[in-house]
């Protein structure tokens, strides 16, 4: 099984943001503690020093303020890239994101097309205290007008960010906290995605497709590598959960005949349900067995001592694949 060295996600997003700030004068960063401190995860380290406090703005401590003023800035022609400090603190911003940012372009009949990016550190697995381990991407994925990205590598985050700042409609990008500093990752096929908004087949296989996204892509790949050569698993890293690149999923299922969806957010009414339903509707004939989902039960993310029981691990993924391919 192969593991490769990689740049930490924080460092690589930092480099992308610096490059974007450098090349587009309309772009600015906005978030709590992102300037002087460089963000609580240091994703924006040194950027205020390099680009100034006008463009790397320490926002007020108010999430609705961050997104609400970003909407106004976007109407004025700027491209705000906002940071919400933790996934669990995105809720005060939901109104501005859902009823305003997502709808402003339509309300203006296309006369403004606000490119507005919201970066949100997400997920658990690092012994965080309450509210610091959430995975609420399915919430925003429900709303037309918002695109939702869940990259699992710095390379993907780079491609997604560069695409997002030109999209002309809001993008929420979830950044897995536990990948910010991780410097090794399971090997991936080098095959590029078809487009910046497409999913990516990160491991070619013949027996079963796993569709997944975000940090847990790493556990899925590790499981897939461990199961080879007995079971040959194809892994689709969705990269975006809204809109979902169903073509790539359906084509993969057409080849393998089996689909498992794995995600870190709880299972009910989640991304996995949407994918399972779409495959049932459009790929049923290709299936050799039922589509299955592997995700935590519907319960609150537990205190750190219990998070191992909550999170889906490599072993559970292997077990599930073996059951499905028996």
């Amino acid at each position: 099984m192969s593991t490769v060295r990689s740049t930490g996600l924080a460092e690589s997003i930092n480099a992308t943001l610096a490059d974007l700030l450098d090349s587009d004068p309309r772009l600015l960063l906005l978030g709590e503690d992102i300037g002087r401190l460089g963000g609580v995860f240091r994703v924006t380290r040194d950027l205020q020093r390099r680009f100034g406090a006008d463009r790397v703005r320490d926002s007020l401590l108010a999430e609705s303020t961050i997104i609400g003023q970003a909407v106004g800035m976007a109407i004025s022609g700027l491209v705000p890239v906002c940071e919400i400090q933790f996934d669990g603190f995105s809720y005060p911003a939901v109104n501005q994101l859902v009823t305003q940012a997502a709808r402003i372009g339509g309300r203006w009949n296309g006369r403004v097309s606000p490119s507005l990016v919201v970066r949100i550190p997400t997920g658990g697995g690092f012994r965080g205290v309450e509210h610091h381990n959430e995975s609420n991407e399915a919430l925003f994925a429900r709303y037309p007008g918002i695109s939702v990205a869940c990259p699992s590598t710095g390379e993907d985050a780079d491609q997604i960010l560069r695409h997002a700042v030109t999209l002309g409609s809001p993008v929420v990008m979830y950044e897995p906290i536990r990948l910010y500093w991780r410097r090794s990752a399971p090997a991936r096929d080098p095959e590029p995605a078809r487009s910046p908004s497409a999913a990516r087949i990160v491991r070619r296989g013949t027996d079963l497709t796993v569709a997944t996204f975000g940090a847990i892509t790493h556990e899925v790949l590790e499981a897939a590598h461990a199961l080879a050569p007995d079971v040959d698993v194809e892994v689709v890293d969705l990269r975006w959960v809204a809109p979902i690149d169903m073509n790539t999923v359906l084509e993969s299922v057409a080849r393998t005949g089996r689909l498992l969806v794995v995600h870190e957010a709880s299972k009910d009414l989640g991304i996995g349900a949407e994918i399972a339903a779409s495959v049932a509707e459009h790929g049923f004939d290709a299936l050799r067995g039922p589509v299955r989902r592997l995700a935590p039960d519907r319960r609150t993310y537990p205190p750190a001592n219990f998070e191992k029981d909550y999170l889906i691990g490599v072993q559970e993924i292997k077990d599930e694949v073996l059951v499905m391919t028996k």
Binding site: G68, V71, G77, L78
Partner: peptide, 27 residues
């Protein structure tokens, strides 16, 4: 004269953000 906003008070933050954005761009 920008579009009517039916979600109460949401436009107040847009207004302030727009003003800041205009100022940043020297307009």
């Amino acid at each position: 004269f920008f579009p009517y906003t039916l979600v109460l008070a949401a436009q107040t933050l847009h207004a302030v953000g727009y003003s800041i954005g205009q100022r940043l761009q020297g307009r």
